[in-house]
């Protein structure tokens, strides 16, 4: 129970980031390595709005999501679009978006400086006792807002015209395009939604850690791992993968050793992939001719 309570909030963060990877992979079929830096940008913009301008936390969150979504769209329009036009190998997309990540990180460094910025939780830092568990209010906020955003995304994908178009592209890009779906627009939406999810993750996690210019690297990597384990391109899988990773980490650091936490988590995940080569939550299909 204790491990569950510990693993849920971080799991929610991973899930939000993982959603970003999966959504883009589903639509555009590429890996976007700048995903982690959308988290960082989100945290910084939220920090500026909330701490420096004194805006309300939730409002800061929404504005920051919007701004970062625009950054995501910009990345799609410039980088991905150019790469796709030249039908570059997928490794070039990785390198290209990595370039974007480096640019983002260092622009943030230039704007906000190298010092880690504290971001106090809007709900205070006095732990609440629930039964015999002591939980930080921010943890509860993370899980609540995180799950709300995931539901919102599900709603968007299932019930809006744009969301349906996005899912159609994910199903079969060629067919969707032949049926008149604007695949470029779908990609743009996927990037925007992914960036927004990342930004939300950034603001939600900021009160637990400090905001730094290189915070995106670690979270980005974990989000990627969660998305892969859940089965890239699979939206519920990404969410499950995020919580799964959070839980394993919590168990590993609690039961075995906190130093080996990530090593254990990675070992488990490699094992998982060994047993299910395309992720826990996707049906494995062997390629034939």
């Amino acid at each position: 129970m204790y491990y569950l309570a510990n693993g849920l909030p971080i799991g929610a963060i991973y899930a939000l980031v993982a959603l970003g990877y999966s959504l883009i992979y589903a639509s555009a079929g590429v890996l976007n390595w700048s995903q982690g830096d959308m988290v960082m940008l989100g945290a910084y913009i939220g920090y500026s709005l909330h701490r420096l301008l004194g805006l309300n936390y939730v409002l800061s969150l929404l504005i920051s999501m919007l701004v970062v979504a625009c950054v995501g769209m910009l990345v799609e329009r410039t980088v991905l679009h150019s790469l796709r036009k030249r039908s570059s190998p997928s490794i070039n997309v990785v390198i290209g978006t990595l370039g974007v990540a480096i640019i983002c990180r260092n622009v943030a460094l230039a704007i906000w400086g190298p010092d880690a910025q504290p971001f106090p939780s809007p709900v205070g830092s006095t732990p609440i006792n629930i039964g015999n568990l002591r939980v930080l209010p921010q943890d509860i906020l993370i899980v609540a807002l995180g799950v709300a955003l995931m539901l919102l995304l599900q709603y968007f994908l299932k019930y809006t015209r744009e969301g349906k178009a996005l899912r159609a592209v994910a199903q079969d890009r060629m067919a969707a395009s032949l049926m008149g779906v604007d695949v470029g627009k779908a990609d743009m939406l996927a990037f925007a939604a992914s960036a927004a999810m990342g930004a939300a993750a950034g603001i939600l996690i900021a009160p637990l850690f400090f905001v730094t210019f290189n915070m995106g690297a670690g979270i980005g990597l974990k989000g990627f791992v969660a998305a892969v384990v859940g089965g890239l391109g699979n939206i519920p899988g990404a969410i499950a993968g995020g919580f799964f990773l959070g839980l394993i980490e919590s168990l590993a650091s609690g039961k075995i050793s906190s130093g080996y936490r990530d090593a254990i988590a990675f070992s488990v995940l490699i094992m998982v992939l060994w047993l299910k080569p395309s992720g826990l939550f996707s049906r494995t299909t062997k390629e034939t001719v």
């Binding site: 790469l83 570059s88 190998p89 070039n92 290209g96 480096i102 640019i103 260092n106």
Partner: peptide
Amino acid sequence: QSYRLIVYGAILLLTAIFMP
């Protein structure tokens, strides 16, 4: 100086795009 890595990232990006 501090813009070094920004330019570095941009060069990485442009190479990936224009020299597949």
